[in-house]
Design a protein around this nucleic acid. Structure first.
Length: 506
RNA sequence: CGGGCUGUAGCUCAGCUUGGCUAGAGCGCUGCGUUCGGGACGCAGAGGUCGUAGGUUCAAAUCCUAUCAGCCCGACCA
Protein backbone atom coordinates (compact mmCIF):
# COMPACT_ATOMS: atom_id res chain seq x y z
CA UNK A 1 0.00 0.00 0.00
CA UNK A 2 1.31 3.40 -0.97
CA UNK A 3 2.00 5.70 1.90
CA UNK A 4 -0.18 8.79 1.65
CA UNK A 5 1.80 11.99 1.15
CA UNK A 6 2.23 14.10 4.29
CA UNK A 7 0.30 16.92 2.65
CA UNK A 8 -2.40 17.06 0.03
CA UNK A 9 -0.54 19.69 -1.97
CA UNK A 10 2.84 19.08 -3.50
CA UNK A 11 5.06 21.00 -3.44
CA UNK A 12 4.46 22.70 -0.11
CA UNK A 13 4.45 26.47 0.27
CA UNK A 14 8.01 26.61 1.52
CA UNK A 15 9.30 24.30 -1.19
CA UNK A 16 7.93 26.23 -4.14
CA UNK A 17 5.30 28.84 -3.47
CA UNK A 18 4.28 29.70 -7.05
CA UNK A 19 3.88 26.04 -7.93
CA UNK A 20 1.97 25.44 -4.69
CA UNK A 21 -0.44 28.19 -5.73
CA UNK A 22 -1.18 26.54 -9.05
CA UNK A 23 -1.59 23.15 -7.47
CA UNK A 24 -4.09 24.50 -4.92
CA UNK A 25 -6.21 25.95 -7.71
CA UNK A 26 -6.22 22.59 -9.41
CA UNK A 27 -6.80 20.55 -6.26
CA UNK A 28 -9.57 22.83 -5.03
CA UNK A 29 -11.18 22.75 -8.47
CA UNK A 30 -11.34 26.54 -8.63
CA UNK A 31 -10.32 27.22 -12.21
CA UNK A 32 -8.17 26.08 -15.07
CA UNK A 33 -6.38 27.59 -17.99
CA UNK A 34 -8.53 27.74 -21.07
CA UNK A 35 -7.53 27.07 -24.66
CA UNK A 36 -7.64 30.85 -25.10
CA UNK A 37 -4.31 32.48 -24.41
CA UNK A 38 -4.18 34.06 -20.97
CA UNK A 39 -7.83 33.41 -20.21
CA UNK A 40 -9.17 31.13 -17.51
CA UNK A 41 -12.23 29.01 -17.03
CA UNK A 42 -13.63 29.66 -13.58
CA UNK A 43 -15.12 26.41 -12.36
CA UNK A 44 -18.22 26.16 -10.15
CA UNK A 45 -16.40 26.14 -6.82
CA UNK A 46 -14.30 29.16 -7.74
CA UNK A 47 -17.22 30.95 -9.28
CA UNK A 48 -19.41 30.41 -6.22
CA UNK A 49 -16.79 32.10 -4.11
CA UNK A 50 -16.78 35.01 -6.56
CA UNK A 51 -20.58 35.13 -6.44
CA UNK A 52 -20.46 35.36 -2.67
CA UNK A 53 -17.97 38.19 -2.94
CA UNK A 54 -20.21 39.93 -5.44
CA UNK A 55 -23.26 39.55 -3.25
CA UNK A 56 -21.54 41.02 -0.20
CA UNK A 57 -19.96 43.89 -2.11
CA UNK A 58 -23.12 44.63 -4.01
CA UNK A 59 -25.03 45.05 -0.76
CA UNK A 60 -22.32 47.34 0.55
CA UNK A 61 -22.38 49.47 -2.60
CA UNK A 62 -26.13 49.77 -2.47
CA UNK A 63 -26.17 50.69 1.17
CA UNK A 64 -23.75 53.52 0.36
CA UNK A 65 -26.18 54.85 -2.23
CA UNK A 66 -24.92 53.28 -5.44
CA UNK A 67 -26.95 51.65 -8.20
CA UNK A 68 -25.94 49.20 -10.89
CA UNK A 69 -25.98 49.79 -14.64
CA UNK A 70 -24.32 48.29 -17.66
CA UNK A 71 -22.24 49.87 -20.42
CA UNK A 72 -20.89 48.40 -23.67
CA UNK A 73 -17.98 46.01 -23.92
CA UNK A 74 -16.73 47.72 -27.08
CA UNK A 75 -15.51 51.28 -26.99
CA UNK A 76 -14.75 53.47 -30.02
CA UNK A 77 -11.00 53.89 -30.21
CA UNK A 78 -11.29 57.67 -30.36
CA UNK A 79 -12.78 57.71 -26.84
CA UNK A 80 -9.55 56.44 -25.39
CA UNK A 81 -7.61 59.17 -27.14
CA UNK A 82 -9.38 61.93 -25.24
CA UNK A 83 -7.45 61.77 -21.99
CA UNK A 84 -3.73 61.84 -22.74
CA UNK A 85 -2.39 60.07 -19.65
CA UNK A 86 -5.13 57.48 -19.89
CA UNK A 87 -4.23 56.55 -23.49
CA UNK A 88 -0.61 56.33 -22.53
CA UNK A 89 -1.42 53.96 -19.71
CA UNK A 90 -3.70 51.56 -21.48
CA UNK A 91 -2.84 51.72 -25.20
CA UNK A 92 -0.32 48.90 -25.02
CA UNK A 93 -2.71 46.43 -23.50
CA UNK A 94 -5.82 46.98 -25.55
CA UNK A 95 -7.41 44.29 -27.67
CA UNK A 96 -8.79 45.91 -30.81
CA UNK A 97 -11.72 44.87 -32.95
CA UNK A 98 -11.10 45.87 -36.55
CA UNK A 99 -13.61 43.80 -38.54
CA UNK A 100 -17.24 42.87 -38.25
CA UNK A 101 -17.59 39.86 -40.52
CA UNK A 102 -15.93 36.60 -41.46
CA UNK A 103 -15.89 35.10 -44.92
CA UNK A 104 -14.50 31.87 -46.40
CA UNK A 105 -10.84 32.21 -47.30
CA UNK A 106 -11.14 29.69 -50.13
CA UNK A 107 -9.00 27.15 -48.30
CA UNK A 108 -11.62 25.81 -45.97
CA UNK A 109 -10.98 28.45 -43.32
CA UNK A 110 -12.26 31.90 -42.51
CA UNK A 111 -10.84 35.37 -42.75
CA UNK A 112 -12.01 38.70 -41.38
CA UNK A 113 -13.91 40.85 -43.81
CA UNK A 114 -15.77 44.12 -43.52
CA UNK A 115 -13.18 46.40 -41.91
CA UNK A 116 -14.67 48.89 -39.44
CA UNK A 117 -14.54 52.60 -40.18
CA UNK A 118 -13.29 53.14 -36.68
CA UNK A 119 -11.74 50.29 -34.72
CA UNK A 120 -13.38 49.32 -31.42
CA UNK A 121 -11.39 48.64 -28.31
CA UNK A 122 -12.42 45.89 -25.91
CA UNK A 123 -12.75 47.80 -22.64
CA UNK A 124 -9.67 47.63 -20.42
CA UNK A 125 -11.74 49.82 -18.04
CA UNK A 126 -14.76 51.96 -18.76
CA UNK A 127 -13.99 55.55 -17.73
CA UNK A 128 -14.22 56.76 -21.30
CA UNK A 129 -17.51 55.21 -22.40
CA UNK A 130 -19.17 55.92 -19.07
CA UNK A 131 -17.88 59.48 -19.08
CA UNK A 132 -19.31 59.95 -22.55
CA UNK A 133 -22.74 58.99 -21.27
CA UNK A 134 -22.37 61.10 -18.13
CA UNK A 135 -21.67 64.14 -20.29
CA UNK A 136 -25.13 63.68 -21.78
CA UNK A 137 -26.86 62.94 -18.50
CA UNK A 138 -25.44 65.82 -16.52
CA UNK A 139 -26.63 69.35 -17.15
CA UNK A 140 -27.49 70.73 -13.74
CA UNK A 141 -26.07 70.44 -10.25
CA UNK A 142 -29.43 68.81 -9.56
CA UNK A 143 -28.32 65.87 -11.70
CA UNK A 144 -25.45 65.21 -9.30
CA UNK A 145 -24.11 63.12 -7.80
CA UNK A 146 -24.29 60.14 -10.12
CA UNK A 147 -23.32 57.02 -8.24
CA UNK A 148 -23.16 54.05 -10.59
CA UNK A 149 -21.46 50.68 -10.41
CA UNK A 150 -21.16 48.05 -13.09
CA UNK A 151 -20.30 44.38 -12.83
CA UNK A 152 -18.41 43.47 -15.95
CA UNK A 153 -15.58 41.72 -17.66
CA UNK A 154 -12.59 43.62 -19.02
CA UNK A 155 -9.63 42.68 -21.17
CA UNK A 156 -6.04 43.73 -20.68
CA UNK A 157 -3.51 42.16 -23.00
CA UNK A 158 -0.87 41.30 -20.44
CA UNK A 159 2.34 39.54 -21.37
CA UNK A 160 2.44 37.14 -18.46
CA UNK A 161 -0.65 35.72 -16.83
CA UNK A 162 -1.42 33.76 -13.67
CA UNK A 163 -4.77 32.29 -12.76
CA UNK A 164 -6.90 34.83 -10.87
CA UNK A 165 -3.97 37.17 -10.23
CA UNK A 166 -3.51 38.39 -13.75
CA UNK A 167 -5.50 37.07 -16.65
CA UNK A 168 -6.18 38.60 -20.04
CA UNK A 169 -9.90 38.71 -19.37
CA UNK A 170 -11.09 39.19 -15.83
CA UNK A 171 -14.30 39.86 -13.98
CA UNK A 172 -14.65 42.90 -11.79
CA UNK A 173 -16.83 45.71 -10.67
CA UNK A 174 -16.10 49.31 -11.52
CA UNK A 175 -17.77 52.17 -9.76
CA UNK A 176 -17.94 55.49 -11.57
CA UNK A 177 -19.24 58.56 -9.83
CA UNK A 178 -19.59 62.22 -10.70
CA UNK A 179 -19.94 65.02 -8.16
CA UNK A 180 -20.51 68.75 -8.02
CA UNK A 181 -17.63 69.49 -5.71
CA UNK A 182 -14.08 68.37 -5.20
CA UNK A 183 -14.65 67.70 -1.52
CA UNK A 184 -17.57 65.43 -2.25
CA UNK A 185 -15.64 63.43 -4.86
CA UNK A 186 -12.67 63.08 -2.54
CA UNK A 187 -14.94 61.89 0.21
CA UNK A 188 -16.46 59.33 -2.15
CA UNK A 189 -13.01 58.05 -3.14
CA UNK A 190 -12.08 57.50 0.49
CA UNK A 191 -15.46 56.08 1.42
CA UNK A 192 -15.17 53.35 -1.20
CA UNK A 193 -11.65 52.57 -0.09
CA UNK A 194 -13.12 52.06 3.37
CA UNK A 195 -15.77 49.77 1.92
CA UNK A 196 -13.06 47.68 0.29
CA UNK A 197 -11.04 47.49 3.47
CA UNK A 198 -14.14 46.51 5.40
CA UNK A 199 -14.90 43.78 2.88
CA UNK A 200 -11.33 42.48 2.79
CA UNK A 201 -11.01 42.28 6.55
CA UNK A 202 -14.48 41.25 7.61
CA UNK A 203 -15.47 38.97 4.76
CA UNK A 204 -12.20 37.71 3.34
CA UNK A 205 -10.48 37.72 6.75
CA UNK A 206 -7.60 39.37 4.93
CA UNK A 207 -5.96 42.26 6.76
CA UNK A 208 -5.15 45.21 4.54
CA UNK A 209 -3.34 48.51 4.66
CA UNK A 210 -5.12 51.49 3.21
CA UNK A 211 -2.83 53.91 1.49
CA UNK A 212 -2.15 56.30 -1.31
CA UNK A 213 -0.11 55.43 -4.39
CA UNK A 214 2.80 57.54 -5.54
CA UNK A 215 2.72 59.42 -8.83
CA UNK A 216 4.53 56.58 -10.55
CA UNK A 217 2.00 53.96 -9.52
CA UNK A 218 -1.04 56.12 -10.02
CA UNK A 219 -3.91 55.12 -12.28
CA UNK A 220 -3.45 56.70 -15.72
CA UNK A 221 -5.39 59.93 -15.69
CA UNK A 222 -6.07 60.07 -11.95
CA UNK A 223 -5.21 62.88 -9.57
CA UNK A 224 -4.86 60.45 -6.67
CA UNK A 225 -4.99 56.68 -6.43
CA UNK A 226 -5.65 54.83 -3.19
CA UNK A 227 -5.35 51.11 -2.67
CA UNK A 228 -5.73 48.41 -0.11
CA UNK A 229 -2.61 46.28 0.11
CA UNK A 230 -2.54 42.80 1.58
CA UNK A 231 0.42 40.58 2.34
CA UNK A 232 0.41 37.02 1.05
CA UNK A 233 2.04 34.08 2.83
CA UNK A 234 5.14 34.36 0.65
CA UNK A 235 5.44 37.88 2.01
CA UNK A 236 4.70 39.54 -1.27
CA UNK A 237 2.15 42.32 -1.41
CA UNK A 238 -1.08 42.10 -3.35
CA UNK A 239 -2.96 45.19 -4.42
CA UNK A 240 -6.45 44.05 -3.61
CA UNK A 241 -8.56 47.04 -4.57
CA UNK A 242 -8.18 50.57 -5.85
CA UNK A 243 -10.11 53.80 -5.59
CA UNK A 244 -9.23 56.77 -7.77
CA UNK A 245 -9.93 60.46 -7.40
CA UNK A 246 -9.97 61.61 -11.00
CA UNK A 247 -10.33 65.32 -10.28
CA UNK A 248 -11.62 67.08 -13.39
CA UNK A 249 -9.21 65.34 -15.76
CA UNK A 250 -11.81 63.12 -17.34
CA UNK A 251 -14.63 65.60 -17.13
CA UNK A 252 -12.57 68.19 -18.98
CA UNK A 253 -11.55 65.65 -21.62
CA UNK A 254 -15.11 64.44 -21.99
CA UNK A 255 -17.00 67.64 -21.44
CA UNK A 256 -18.88 66.53 -18.35
CA UNK A 257 -20.22 69.99 -17.53
CA UNK A 258 -23.07 71.33 -15.49
CA UNK A 259 -24.49 74.61 -14.24
CA UNK A 260 -24.03 75.09 -10.53
CA UNK A 261 -26.39 76.84 -8.11
CA UNK A 262 -25.15 80.25 -9.22
CA UNK A 263 -25.66 79.49 -12.88
CA UNK A 264 -21.93 79.14 -13.51
CA UNK A 265 -20.72 76.41 -15.83
CA UNK A 266 -18.47 73.89 -14.07
CA UNK A 267 -16.78 70.60 -14.73
CA UNK A 268 -17.88 67.63 -12.65
CA UNK A 269 -15.49 65.89 -10.25
CA UNK A 270 -15.28 62.17 -10.89
CA UNK A 271 -14.07 59.01 -9.19
CA UNK A 272 -13.67 55.37 -10.11
CA UNK A 273 -12.99 52.30 -8.02
CA UNK A 274 -12.74 48.57 -8.57
CA UNK A 275 -11.99 45.11 -7.31
CA UNK A 276 -11.63 41.99 -9.42
CA UNK A 277 -11.47 38.22 -9.45
CA UNK A 278 -7.91 38.79 -8.30
CA UNK A 279 -9.43 38.74 -4.83
CA UNK A 280 -9.93 35.00 -5.19
CA UNK A 281 -6.17 34.69 -5.69
CA UNK A 282 -5.71 36.78 -2.57
CA UNK A 283 -7.95 34.46 -0.64
CA UNK A 284 -5.94 31.42 -1.70
CA UNK A 285 -2.61 32.99 -0.81
CA UNK A 286 -3.78 34.48 2.47
CA UNK A 287 -5.36 31.40 4.01
CA UNK A 288 -4.36 28.33 2.00
CA UNK A 289 -2.14 25.73 3.62
CA UNK A 290 -0.26 22.63 2.47
CA UNK A 291 -3.54 20.72 2.32
CA UNK A 292 -5.19 23.19 -0.04
CA UNK A 293 -7.55 26.07 0.13
CA UNK A 294 -9.23 27.42 3.24
CA UNK A 295 -12.34 29.46 2.52
CA UNK A 296 -13.36 31.92 5.23
CA UNK A 297 -16.86 30.93 6.41
CA UNK A 298 -18.50 34.16 5.32
CA UNK A 299 -17.55 33.49 1.70
CA UNK A 300 -17.75 29.72 1.66
CA UNK A 301 -20.16 28.27 -0.91
CA UNK A 302 -20.78 25.56 1.66
CA UNK A 303 -20.23 26.05 5.36
CA UNK A 304 -20.69 22.42 6.26
CA UNK A 305 -20.40 19.18 4.36
CA UNK A 306 -21.96 16.02 5.73
CA UNK A 307 -20.07 12.83 4.91
CA UNK A 308 -22.08 9.69 5.54
CA UNK A 309 -20.01 6.65 6.46
CA UNK A 310 -21.73 3.81 4.66
CA UNK A 311 -20.74 0.22 5.27
CA UNK A 312 -22.85 -1.19 2.52
CA UNK A 313 -24.96 -3.16 4.98
CA UNK A 314 -28.46 -2.57 6.28
CA UNK A 315 -27.34 0.34 8.46
CA UNK A 316 -26.89 2.53 5.35
CA UNK A 317 -30.48 3.56 4.91
CA UNK A 318 -30.75 4.63 8.53
CA UNK A 319 -27.50 6.58 8.34
CA UNK A 320 -28.69 8.39 5.23
CA UNK A 321 -31.95 9.24 6.87
CA UNK A 322 -30.13 10.53 9.92
CA UNK A 323 -27.93 12.67 7.65
CA UNK A 324 -30.92 14.17 5.87
CA UNK A 325 -32.48 15.09 9.19
CA UNK A 326 -29.22 16.60 10.36
CA UNK A 327 -29.02 18.55 7.14
CA UNK A 328 -32.38 20.20 7.67
CA UNK A 329 -31.52 20.97 11.27
CA UNK A 330 -28.33 22.67 10.15
CA UNK A 331 -30.17 24.60 7.45
CA UNK A 332 -32.51 25.95 10.09
CA UNK A 333 -29.56 27.60 11.81
CA UNK A 334 -28.28 30.93 10.60
CA UNK A 335 -24.83 32.38 10.27
CA UNK A 336 -24.00 35.92 9.26
CA UNK A 337 -27.68 36.67 8.68
CA UNK A 338 -28.30 33.79 6.31
CA UNK A 339 -29.20 30.12 6.60
CA UNK A 340 -26.15 27.92 7.13
CA UNK A 341 -25.14 26.45 3.78
CA UNK A 342 -24.81 22.69 4.04
CA UNK A 343 -24.17 19.94 1.51
CA UNK A 344 -24.68 16.22 1.91
CA UNK A 345 -22.08 14.37 -0.10
CA UNK A 346 -23.56 10.95 -0.80
CA UNK A 347 -21.44 10.23 -3.86
CA UNK A 348 -20.36 6.63 -4.22
CA UNK A 349 -16.64 7.16 -3.90
CA UNK A 350 -14.20 6.10 -1.23
CA UNK A 351 -14.64 7.90 2.07
CA UNK A 352 -11.04 8.97 2.44
CA UNK A 353 -10.83 10.39 -1.02
CA UNK A 354 -14.10 12.19 -0.55
CA UNK A 355 -12.99 13.75 2.71
CA UNK A 356 -9.76 14.96 1.15
CA UNK A 357 -11.58 16.57 -1.74
CA UNK A 358 -13.45 18.75 0.72
CA UNK A 359 -10.29 19.50 2.65
CA UNK A 360 -8.56 20.62 -0.53
CA UNK A 361 -11.52 22.82 -1.45
CA UNK A 362 -11.46 24.41 1.96
CA UNK A 363 -14.98 23.68 3.23
CA UNK A 364 -14.94 25.11 6.78
CA UNK A 365 -16.61 22.23 8.62
CA UNK A 366 -16.82 18.52 7.82
CA UNK A 367 -19.17 16.19 9.67
CA UNK A 368 -18.77 12.46 9.40
CA UNK A 369 -21.81 10.41 10.30
CA UNK A 370 -21.62 6.64 10.65
CA UNK A 371 -23.65 4.00 12.49
CA UNK A 372 -21.72 4.60 15.71
CA UNK A 373 -22.34 8.36 15.67
CA UNK A 374 -25.96 7.75 14.88
CA UNK A 375 -26.36 5.39 17.81
CA UNK A 376 -24.79 7.84 20.23
CA UNK A 377 -26.48 10.82 18.54
CA UNK A 378 -23.04 12.34 18.00
CA UNK A 379 -21.36 14.17 15.13
CA UNK A 380 -17.73 13.56 14.24
CA UNK A 381 -16.49 17.01 13.32
CA UNK A 382 -13.39 18.36 11.60
CA UNK A 383 -12.59 22.03 11.14
CA UNK A 384 -10.57 23.22 8.15
CA UNK A 385 -8.42 25.59 10.19
CA UNK A 386 -7.23 22.62 12.23
CA UNK A 387 -5.15 19.60 11.13
CA UNK A 388 -7.09 17.05 9.01
CA UNK A 389 -6.81 14.24 11.55
CA UNK A 390 -7.88 16.36 14.47
CA UNK A 391 -11.55 15.52 14.71
CA UNK A 392 -13.93 15.70 17.60
CA UNK A 393 -17.07 13.85 18.59
CA UNK A 394 -19.79 16.29 19.67
CA UNK A 395 -23.38 15.58 20.75
CA UNK A 396 -25.59 16.39 17.78
CA UNK A 397 -27.77 18.97 19.48
CA UNK A 398 -24.75 20.80 20.78
CA UNK A 399 -23.02 20.67 17.41
CA UNK A 400 -26.03 22.17 15.66
CA UNK A 401 -26.66 24.87 18.22
CA UNK A 402 -23.01 26.01 18.35
CA UNK A 403 -22.44 25.87 14.60
CA UNK A 404 -22.78 29.59 13.97
CA UNK A 405 -20.44 30.26 16.85
CA UNK A 406 -17.89 27.82 15.42
CA UNK A 407 -18.05 29.46 12.02
CA UNK A 408 -17.65 32.91 13.48
CA UNK A 409 -14.77 31.68 15.56
CA UNK A 410 -13.08 30.26 12.50
CA UNK A 411 -13.63 33.48 10.57
CA UNK A 412 -11.89 35.33 13.38
CA UNK A 413 -9.08 32.77 13.68
CA UNK A 414 -8.26 33.14 10.02
CA UNK A 415 -8.09 36.90 10.29
CA UNK A 416 -5.96 36.77 13.43
CA UNK A 417 -3.59 34.27 11.89
CA UNK A 418 -3.17 36.39 8.75
CA UNK A 419 -2.70 39.57 10.75
CA UNK A 420 -0.06 37.92 12.88
CA UNK A 421 1.81 36.69 9.80
CA UNK A 422 1.78 40.21 8.41
CA UNK A 423 2.97 41.80 11.60
CA UNK A 424 5.80 39.30 11.91
CA UNK A 425 6.94 40.19 8.40
CA UNK A 426 6.69 43.95 8.82
CA UNK A 427 9.78 45.94 9.76
CA UNK A 428 10.81 49.53 10.10
CA UNK A 429 13.97 49.84 8.04
CA UNK A 430 16.23 52.87 8.28
CA UNK A 431 19.33 51.97 6.31
CA UNK A 432 19.86 51.02 2.70
CA UNK A 433 22.05 48.05 3.70
CA UNK A 434 19.32 46.60 5.81
CA UNK A 435 16.83 47.25 3.04
CA UNK A 436 18.95 45.36 0.52
CA UNK A 437 19.47 42.52 2.95
CA UNK A 438 15.76 42.30 3.71
CA UNK A 439 14.83 41.92 0.06
CA UNK A 440 17.70 39.72 -1.13
CA UNK A 441 17.08 35.96 -1.03
CA UNK A 442 19.81 33.78 0.45
CA UNK A 443 19.34 31.25 -2.34
CA UNK A 444 19.24 33.32 -5.51
CA UNK A 445 18.68 30.31 -7.78
CA UNK A 446 15.50 29.23 -6.12
CA UNK A 447 14.57 32.06 -3.80
CA UNK A 448 13.21 31.06 -0.44
CA UNK A 449 10.32 32.94 1.10
CA UNK A 450 11.89 36.19 2.21
CA UNK A 451 11.27 39.89 2.64
CA UNK A 452 7.99 41.28 3.80
CA UNK A 453 6.68 44.77 4.29
CA UNK A 454 9.35 47.36 4.90
CA UNK A 455 8.31 50.68 6.37
CA UNK A 456 10.82 53.28 5.27
CA UNK A 457 11.37 56.97 4.90
CA UNK A 458 11.46 57.94 1.27
CA UNK A 459 11.70 60.66 -1.28
CA UNK A 460 10.67 59.94 -4.83
CA UNK A 461 13.39 60.26 -7.42
CA UNK A 462 16.05 58.59 -9.53
CA UNK A 463 17.94 57.13 -6.55
CA UNK A 464 14.92 55.33 -5.23
CA UNK A 465 13.65 54.10 -8.60
CA UNK A 466 16.99 52.57 -9.54
CA UNK A 467 17.34 50.58 -6.34
CA UNK A 468 13.74 49.41 -6.34
CA UNK A 469 14.09 48.22 -9.90
CA UNK A 470 17.28 46.38 -9.09
CA UNK A 471 15.73 44.58 -6.10
CA UNK A 472 12.35 44.10 -7.81
CA UNK A 473 10.72 45.91 -4.95
CA UNK A 474 8.02 48.52 -5.26
CA UNK A 475 6.58 51.23 -3.12
CA UNK A 476 3.18 49.81 -2.35
CA UNK A 477 1.55 52.78 -0.70
CA UNK A 478 1.84 55.59 1.75
CA UNK A 479 -0.42 54.42 4.56
CA UNK A 480 -3.28 56.75 5.37
CA UNK A 481 -3.14 56.00 9.04
CA UNK A 482 0.57 56.67 9.46
CA UNK A 483 1.82 59.33 11.81
CA UNK A 484 3.89 62.23 10.60
CA UNK A 485 7.49 61.43 11.51
CA UNK A 486 10.66 63.24 10.54
CA UNK A 487 13.50 61.25 9.02
CA UNK A 488 15.56 60.95 5.91
CA UNK A 489 15.02 58.99 2.71
CA UNK A 490 17.05 55.79 2.86
CA UNK A 491 17.81 56.05 -0.85
CA UNK A 492 18.66 59.71 -1.33
CA UNK A 493 19.17 61.04 2.23
CA UNK A 494 16.72 63.79 1.47
CA UNK A 495 14.39 64.77 4.29
CA UNK A 496 11.20 62.77 4.67
CA UNK A 497 8.16 63.20 6.88
CA UNK A 498 6.39 59.93 6.39
CA UNK A 499 7.11 56.25 5.99
CA UNK A 500 5.86 54.25 3.03
CA UNK A 501 5.35 50.51 2.65
CA UNK A 502 7.82 48.76 0.37
CA UNK A 503 7.49 45.16 -0.79
CA UNK A 504 7.86 42.75 -3.60
CA UNK A 505 4.50 42.50 -5.24
CA UNK A 506 2.23 40.54 -7.53
C1' C B 1 9.11 42.35 -29.34
C1' G B 2 14.63 40.22 -27.72
C1' G B 3 16.91 35.42 -25.37
C1' G B 4 16.05 30.00 -23.85
C1' C B 5 12.79 25.67 -24.23
C1' U B 6 8.67 22.29 -25.23
C1' G B 7 4.59 19.99 -28.35
C1' U B 8 3.64 11.77 -27.82
C1' A B 9 -3.16 8.75 -23.99
C1' G B 10 -7.69 12.95 -19.93
C1' C B 11 -2.96 14.61 -16.80
C1' U B 12 2.61 14.22 -15.94
C1' C B 13 6.16 12.35 -18.93
C1' A B 14 9.80 8.31 -21.25
C1' G B 15 11.27 6.91 -26.23
C1' C B 16 14.33 10.90 -30.60
C1' U B 17 21.33 11.44 -29.98
C1' U B 18 22.56 6.26 -33.51
C1' G B 19 15.34 5.85 -38.30
C1' G B 20 13.46 -0.71 -38.05
C1' C B 21 8.50 -5.79 -34.58
C1' U B 22 1.81 -4.27 -32.71
C1' A B 23 4.51 3.32 -29.50
C1' G B 24 5.41 2.76 -23.50
C1' A B 25 5.05 4.08 -17.96
C1' G B 26 2.76 6.39 -13.66
C1' C B 27 -1.64 8.82 -12.26
C1' G B 28 -6.77 9.21 -13.75
C1' C B 29 -11.01 6.46 -16.03
C1' U B 30 -14.36 1.58 -16.65
C1' G B 31 -15.53 -3.53 -14.79
C1' C B 32 -14.93 -7.57 -11.23
C1' G B 33 -13.08 -9.10 -6.54
C1' U B 34 -10.85 -8.28 -1.62
C1' U B 35 -10.80 -4.29 1.72
C1' C B 36 -12.75 0.21 4.12
C1' G B 37 -14.71 5.17 10.39
C1' G B 38 -11.00 6.22 5.41
C1' G B 39 -6.50 9.67 0.44
C1' A B 40 -6.31 1.02 -0.15
C1' C B 41 -4.92 -3.42 -3.05
C1' G B 42 -5.22 -7.30 -6.95
C1' C B 43 -6.84 -8.75 -11.77
C1' A B 44 -8.93 -7.36 -16.38
C1' G B 45 -10.00 -3.32 -19.78
C1' A B 46 -10.93 1.35 -22.62
C1' G B 47 -8.01 5.29 -24.45
C1' G B 48 -2.80 7.81 -29.02
C1' U B 49 -3.17 8.61 -37.39
C1' C B 50 3.40 11.04 -31.72
C1' G B 51 1.05 19.77 -32.86
C1' U B 52 0.24 20.69 -38.42
C1' A B 53 2.03 20.59 -43.61
C1' G B 54 5.67 19.11 -46.84
C1' G B 55 10.40 16.54 -47.79
C1' U B 56 14.46 12.56 -47.43
C1' U B 57 14.12 7.02 -47.09
C1' C B 58 12.52 0.29 -48.56
C1' A B 59 11.04 2.29 -43.64
C1' A B 60 9.98 8.52 -39.74
C1' A B 61 7.57 9.88 -32.99
C1' U B 62 12.96 9.71 -34.34
C1' C B 63 16.45 13.12 -39.77
C1' C B 64 15.46 17.98 -42.86
C1' U B 65 12.32 22.44 -44.07
C1' A B 66 8.26 25.41 -43.09
C1' U B 67 4.32 26.63 -39.99
C1' C B 68 1.18 26.91 -35.65
C1' A B 69 0.65 26.69 -30.41
C1' G B 70 2.33 26.84 -25.47
C1' C B 71 5.99 27.54 -21.37
C1' C B 72 10.23 30.12 -18.95
C1' C B 73 13.54 34.74 -18.52
C1' G B 74 13.37 40.37 -19.72
C1' A B 75 10.21 45.49 -20.59
C1' C B 76 4.27 46.18 -18.77
C1' C B 77 0.43 45.17 -15.15
C1' A B 78 -6.00 44.84 -11.02
Amino acid sequence: MAKPPPHAIQPTRSEDYPEWYQQVIRAADLAEVSPVRGCMVIKPWGYSIWENMQAALDRMFKSTGHVNAYFPLLIPMSYLEKEAAHVEGFAKECAVVTHHRLEPDGEGGLRPAGPLEEPLVVRPTSETIIGEMYSKWIQSYRDLPILINQWANVVRWEMRTRLFLRTTEFLWQEGHTAHATQAEAEEETRKMLDVYADFAENWMAMPVIKGEKTAEERFPGAVATYSIEAMMQDRKALQAGTSHFLGQNFSRAQEIKFQDETGQEAYAWTTSWGVSTRLVGGLIMTHGDDDGMIVPPRLAPQHVVILPVLRGDDSSAAVMEYCHTLKSQIEAESFNGQPVRVALDARDIRGGEKTWQHIKRGVPIRVEIGPRDMEGDHCFVGRRDQPPKQKESIPRAQFVSTLAEQLQNMQQQLFDRALQAREEATRDIDTLDEFRDFFTPKQPKQPEIHGGLARCHFSEGEEMSAILKELKVSLRCIPLESEREDGECIFSKRPSHRRAIFAKAY
